[in-house]
Amino acid sequence: MAGTYSLGIDRIACDGYGLCAELLPERIELDEWGYPVVASAPLAGDALRHARRAVAACPALALRLDRATERVPDRQPAQRT
């Protein structure tokens, strides 16, 4: 699905201030500690425009748009031995 995007978060960089949830309430909620919970559905049209604004506003540069096509190969489960 070339051209579709979804939201990604660098969880280490994210400081939980929650600006993204204010700018994009239709996609991002905050947990009880103020860290974002993101709906994983692909973004298009208006939603994509709003998402771009939220990405630009994230003070920690933690929020990003991932191209859906870039998600293959998806990250692998952790090695755990």
Partner: peptide, 9 residues
């Protein structure tokens, strides 16, 4: 303890 949801959750 690097990511909020893990550190607190």
């Amino acid at each position: 303890r690097q990511c909020g949801p893990c550190r607190l959750g």
